[in-house]
Amino acid sequence: MTETRDLSLTIEHLTLRKTLFVCGVLLLLLACILLGSALVGSQSLPFTSSLCALAGGSNCGLSSEQQAILFDLRLPRILLAGAVGICLATAGAGYQALLRNPLAEPYLLGVSNGAAVGTMVALVFFGQHEWSRPVMAFGGALAATFVVYRLARGRAGATPERLILAGVIVTTFLSSGIVFITTLMDATRIRSFTFWLLGDLSGTTTSLLLITFIAAGIGVAVLALNARSLNLMMLGERDAFDLGVEVGRVRITVFVAASLLVGASVASSGSVGYVGLVVPHLVRLAFGSDNRVVIAASALGGAAFVILADTVARTIIAPRELPVGAITALIGAPLFVYLLKRR
């Protein structure tokens, strides 16, 4: 019942200070990871010259190719990883708070699969319009979210177990949809799709990167604005209602914002699993479960986590590559088991 104490106004500005402090620390960490990951890759670049170029120097002694590797290939990919991390971790934090379920995660709820089906439909029918991918992915994520939510609501309300079961059902149903679509598509594209389904951050375009960042910004802002209401709703929807929270409106808002986040990330990178599960859990473990802190910290922590995972994915067997989703699952699953055991 620590949340009830948070209600008192005297602690209000303390929370703000704590949030700012946590964000400052995480921003510093993120900056270090950003810089570090920009300096390693399948091609080794001269250290000081790269540092100089990254700092904005114009004549650092990098060849035009090294310049292109650093700025055209490596940095956009790192930025996309960051955006995807922000999206998935924040969406996970939002679902967990709203559904009062520690296991709620875009991947496990089937929301990622909904977005994946949307993206594939966009690719099959509107292949030449790039913007159709995030739009359809958003639609797919939203549809999956509402179906899961409706399935999970029994007469006794939505129990955590019901929710997870509903997620499993929706996930498997949509997986068969994905198999159906890949079978319909011509053979030469299937290989790239199986890679994409596991999460692939390479070959992004500026417009897709921009869309992902805009979606991340909007989604995080909306969730952060609803953090206080989410705190109250963690006490129970009825109690929150009695305390003056417009439960229905908050629920819809959070669902839409989280779907936007998942849709944008899946459209640009496929389904990267476990991010929405691991990052918010680590954040809560470190900084407590006040959603005002958790949402902001998950955004920054998620970016750091996916950037780190993708750096491993693109360097560990260089010059070949692994899908980033394999790495997040490899780090995420054991960590999650450890977290569960510690409880």
């Binding site: 890759g41 290939l73 260089a318 010059p319 590559e321």
Partner: peptide
Amino acid sequence: TAEVPDAFPRFSDEAALAAR
């Protein structure tokens, strides 16, 4: 990419460019 293991490897963007 003659020395890369596998028949049809997923290849790094940077390495492809760096191979000139």
